[in-house]
């Protein structure tokens, strides 16, 4: 056994349901917690980001058009797939970032969080919709609809649970997303991409890019077809850059840095509502 040479995994980007290398062919090393090389990650370029946004847009109408029941089934399928790979996630987290105990804890919480949001898909709309008693003879109701394409900047401090906590409410609500993974823990994001790929999630609904935030954030924040950006990274300059560029097409921006994603309170339908638009429809009542 000890003589056997282990097989290393090539980590790739996940765009439009396909694993591909960066078109730039640039890469950067991911280190384990002893600062030894762990894997080579693709350093996504602006072109990769644009391809990812395009894939997300292409997937948007199908995903948002699916029955809430179906989206719930698919999120639950993701949880099933993660459970099957529980040991792998624990081992990768332990090697890359944290103690064994914390790795177990984080993996279990992440799986449970997917189950939590799987259950929200067909319920949040009922909670946050309203039939409005207007004073004129009209039937009037308001319902949430997905904002569209959501850019996600993942945090460094919660390699797995941070990613799941950001992605799950976004796709539960019918949005598609482009994720810029943690710079330090991109390899975990690559493994999550494999889970997503094998969970009936249509290609393009979740796109995951590894690379440098400084390379990618400016292009994500200025992209005219991205409707919202959720940022859990805590660099004040990068946050400011996102906010400043957001004005170009009036992107919705939410910052989640400093959130303890391990806590139970860090899963609420209000995260789903952060990337929903409320649509109100009027119709006359009469004969």
């Amino acid at each position: 056994m000890s003589n056997r040479l282990n097989v290393l995994k090539t980590c790739k980007l996940y765009i439009g349901g396909k694993f591909s290398r960066s078109e730039s062919e640039h890469y950067f090393p991911a280190l384990d917690k002893k600062q030894k090389p762990l894997a080579n990650l693709c350093r996504a370029s602006r072109k990769d980001l644009r391809n990812a946004v395009q894939a997300a847009r292409k997937a948007q109408s199908d995903w948002s058009g699916r029955a809430a029941y179906n989206r719930g089934q698919i999120l639950y399928r993701m949880a099933e797939m993660m459970e099957g790979r529980r040991e792998q996630f624990i081992a990768e987290l332990e090697r890359a970032a944290v103690s064994r105990r914390r790795a177990e804890n984080e993996t279990d919480t992440a799986i449970d969080r997917l189950v939590h949001y799987a259950g929200w898909t067909d319920k949040y709309s009922a909670l946050f919709s309203s039939v409005n008693p207007v004073a004129s003879p009209h039937f009037n109701f308001s319902i949430p609809e997905p904002t569209g394409i959501v850019g996600i900047v993942a945090p460094d401090d919660y390699p797995l649970i941070g990613l799941i906590s950001l992605i799950a409410p976004v796709i539960a609500g019918g949005n598609t997303c482009v994720v810029i993974s943690s710079e330090k823990y991109g390899s975990i994001a690559c493994t999550l991409a494999e889970v997503i790929h094998s969970s009936d999630v249509p290609g393009g609904v979740v796109n995951i890019l590894t690379g440098f935030r400084a390379d990618l954030i400016p292009h994500l924040a200025t992209h005219m077809d991205v409707n919202a950006v959720l940022c859990a990274a805590d660099d004040p300059e990068q946050k400011k850059n996102i906010q400043e560029s957001a004005h170009l097409n009036v992107k919705r921006v939410h910052f989640y840095d400093g959130t303890n994603w391990m806590k139970e309170e860090s899963q609420t339908p209000y995260y789903i509502m952060d990337v929903q638009e409320v649509k109100t429809t009027w119709h006359p009542v009469g004969i």
């Binding site: 309203s130 009036v250 649509k279 109100t280």
Partner: peptide
Amino acid sequence: RAGVIWANTFNKFDPTSPFGGYKESGI
């Protein structure tokens, strides 16, 4: 893709009825 849809009517407003935009029409 808009925040208010008027079906067989138009330009109706009421305090009980949420109003606001998608995309570059607001947040």
